[in-house]
């Protein structure tokens, strides 16, 4: 069995003269929670559809668990996949439980598994209500329950938290962590970078049909070598004292915002700077090291 559950080699998609995806190589290991980020038109939706077998690949290949998604073991491969489309559309005239029954039948999953899935996504109370009456967040949760049918080994989640309130987003990621503990691999896209940066194991930044960078959030930050920010709170004369102790250390900028001092400095200057700041004693009330956000990293790779 392949250790990489998703393996793309030179995957390319042409739409007429436009090359939407330009020879992407991507490996996702079994059990990973993998994020794919990129702005609209970066090619991530196209890559997603190629991985799912919804659009044919112009050249290259993509293997899911060692098999082509539309290959000879088509049905077997697809039974391992769960998919939650962006802004999932289900059938308005069916009730929640009927919707799951329909998809369960097509996936050859016993119908008796359905109520537990509704429970898992917090929709038990609405099982016999028509989807027409569901809110956007409820539809999204029903779509997620549908994706979980048949305990898939590989989940594709396209902008999964669209329409969910903060509480539901927290519940959603809790379920994702449970699934990862069970060994499920998940590939998700999001435009809310701050939301996924704490939650994915690795991510890929897509831009112009290419994957610009792949790695953990920390890898990407270090790879970009973006400056850190130290935020220091303290009493009167703080700015002068800080400037004094940091003399000789390469600092990019110091800004005072209210009673907080924001010091931008290169990553390699962090430890020496902290050692000197520790000598300030009571003058410094609080100190916070702020890593560059995924947004910073993302825009760093774009530019």
């Amino acid at each position: 069995m392949a250790s990489n559950i998703v393996e793309a080699r030179g995957a390319t998609k042409d739409f007429g003269t436009v090359q939407a995806v330009k020879g992407v190589d991507l490996s996702i290991a079994a059990g990973e929670l993998f994020g794919l980020i990129g702005h609209n038109g970066a090619g991530k939706s196209t890559l997603f559809k190629m991985m799912l077998g919804l659009i044919p690949i112009t050249s290259g290949e993509i293997l899911l668990d060692g098999e082509k998604v539309n290959g000879p073991r088509f049905r077997e491969t697809r039974r391992k996949i769960g998919y939650l489309p962006e802004n999932v559309v289900l059938y308005d005239n069916l009730t929640g439980i009927e919707t799951l029954y329909f998809f369960a039948d097509l996936k050859a999953v016993p119908r008796k598994d359905c109520p537990a899935l509704l429970e898992k996504v917090g929709l038990s109370h609405a099982a016999s209500r028509r989807v027409r009456e569901y809110s956007k967040g409820m539809r999204q949760r029903l779509g997620f329950a549908q994706a979980l049918l048949g305990t898939p080994r590989l989940l594709f989640l396209d902008e999964p938290t669209t329409g969910l309130d903060p509480g539901a987003i927290r519940d959603f990621y809790r379920i994702l962590r449970e699934l990862r503990d069970e060994g499920v691999t998940m590939v998700l896209t999001s435009h809310i970078l701050a939301e996924i940066q704490e939650r994915v194991d690795r991510l890929a930044i897509m831009e112009g049909g290419l994957i610009r960078a792949t790695g953990t959030v920390q890898d990407l930050r270090e790879g970009m070598n973006l400056p850190l920010t130290l935020e220091i709170a303290g009493g009167a004369g703080l700015a002068e004292q800080v400037a004094r102790v940091l003399q000789g250390i390469a600092i990019e900028s110091i800004e005072e915002a209210g009673s907080i001092l924001h010091i931008r400095l290169p990553r390699e200057a962090k430890m020496p700077a902290l050692a000197r700041l520790a000598t300030l004693g009571d003058t410094m009330r609080d100190l916070h090291v702020r890593e560059p956000s995924l947004e910073d990293v993302f825009f760093g790779y774009r530019n």
Binding site: L54, P85, L106
Partner: peptide, 14 residues
């Protein structure tokens, strides 16, 4: 047009 076709086509159905 509704967007449910993509979901159907990722299922084990030709």
């Amino acid at each position: 047009e509704r967007g449910s076709l993509d979901l159907l086509l990722t299922l084990p159905i030709t």
